[in-house]
Simulated assay, not measured.
Amino acid sequence: MLKVESLQTDFGDGLMLINLLEIISSKSFPKYNKQPRIQMQKLENLTFALKFLESEGIKLVSIDSNSIASGNLKLILGLIWTIILRYQIQVSNGASARQDLLDWVRSKIPEYNINNFMGDWQDGKAICALAEAVLPGQMNLPRDFSNDAVKNANMGMKKAKDNMGIPEILDAEDMVYNPDELSNMTYISYFRDYLDLESRKKDEELAERTPVPAKCLAYGPGLEPNNLDTGDTSFTIEARDKNGKPMGQGGDNFVVDIQGPTGPVEAAVVDNGDGTYTVTYAPKDAGAHDIAVTLDDVPIKGSTFHVDIKPGAWAKNTFLKDFSFVVQTRDKRNVDLKTGGQQVGVEIKGPKGPVNAKLHDNKDGTYTVVYDIKDKGDYNIHVTVDGDHVKGSPFKQTAV
């Protein structure tokens, strides 16, 4: 933990100043002498620190490494105040730190008519009012006020510390009896920082509840090959936040636009309430389909998706092309024959005449007959062995 005992001497080797700047700026120095032993190394560290401040856009006047090394307290105090202005009160060159902060205070507690950072705070009431304005509900004002200015200031400072984490960098007595403008400004700037931090937290919370199109995903069978134009298919949209984390809740405005070979294809999007959305569509035709998925008019990751829909079998147009049956030959003892070569004959007559039939000897005592039915009506099937009809022949079949 950094601890400064003397501003006049503790910055002399540059280490304390470099460490302070690294902490307050959240940036790291690429190199410096971590164990300076000679004066040249100490001056080099101080030069690194001052050049860093200049790179941050801070204008330094009448101060150099020798000024700090020699313990010029006036210039060191000026440097510290410059750092406070830049990193705590957050004022850049050319702006009025006092006026900016004063305008902010007046916007928060206009009824107190604050015009300075000294006498207007001495009754302790203004700091309480500011704390209550920044985080309402801490006190019941003006009922909680007393005639004791120090007690009032202590109340406001304690509430700010306990409820907002604002450090008590000065005492209530200092604010009441010995007000220092720069000290008061620094302390009061923490209240503005608190609001800025809370605002950023709310923005972060909102961002965690807000899906980012570039992070959202779409996946599933409906975006993959081998889909057919004869039935429904589907895919899933998954909402994700800026860090790529699944949202886990629904309510987002995802829109799916599908364009097929002959025009738009309707898509149904169902919110599953858990951050996922099921999209179902029925391709009208085979061919290339472009599927665009957007969130608030912004394409999600990977959109537009290109899916090639293949033609599928359509029941109404599908028919039985070849019919077949098997003839099992038997001997006089009603035992299945195991060899072929018998005189098996087949003749089929349909509603429009003879039907072509193919007979195949399977060489195992069975014969396969394949034929085609093209017309509706009755078909008579004659099966013979050595010219005699087999059992049940002729057979009748009706095509409807």
Rank of each mutant, 00 (worst) to 15 (best):
I24C: 15
L130R: 08
Y367Q: 04
N317Y: 14
N154S: 08
F117H: 09
D13W: 01
T339G: 00
E205K: 08
D144F: 08
P142C: 05
G340Y: 08
Y277H: 02
E181S: 14
A207G: 06
F395C: 07
I300T: 08
G251V: 06
N317A: 11
Y281V: 00
D386A: 03
I258F: 01
L2I: 15
D162H: 02
F395E: 08
V255K: 00
K316I: 11
V91R: 00
S92H: 10
S67W: 05
D229H: 12
K352Q: 03
N272W: 09
D285H: 05
K108Q: 03
L228G: 15
A95M: 09
A292C: 11
D364W: 03
V400Q: 13
I309W: 01
D375R: 05
D193F: 04
D203R: 01
A129T: 14
M118W: 01
E111M: 14
W121V: 15
K374V: 14
D193G: 10
L295E: 11
D229E: 07
Y87R: 13
T47F: 02
E224F: 05
G341Y: 00
K42I: 05
L21T: 11
F145D: 00
P167N: 07
V385K: 03
I38H: 01
E266F: 10
K51H: 13
C216K: 06
V326P: 07
A292T: 01
I381W: 03
V369R: 02
H289P: 13
Q41R: 07
P394C: 10
T262V: 08
P221G: 03
G273C: 06
M185G: 02
K358H: 13
V390C: 14
Q343P: 09
D296M: 07
D100M: 02
G341R: 12
T329W: 12
I348V: 11
L141V: 10
I109R: 12
L75G: 14
G244C: 01
M16C: 13
A286F: 09
Q259M: 06
F145G: 00
A315N: 07
K3R: 14
I258C: 12
N178A: 15
P110A: 05
K27F: 04
I24F: 15
M40P: 11
T280R: 03
G124F: 14
V265S: 08
A153G: 00
I58C: 06
V298N: 10
F117M: 05
A214F: 02
K321G: 12
H360A: 13
I169F: 08
I291Y: 11
P351D: 06
S67L: 05
T398E: 03
G156V: 09
I63W: 02
L217C: 08
L182Y: 12
I166S: 04
G165Y: 01
L130M: 09
P264G: 11
N147G: 15
K242S: 07
Q88P: 15
K59W: 12
Q41W: 07
L15R: 03
E238P: 15
Y187I: 00
D388G: 10
D103N: 04
K201V: 07
E208Y: 05
V307Y: 01
A129P: 03
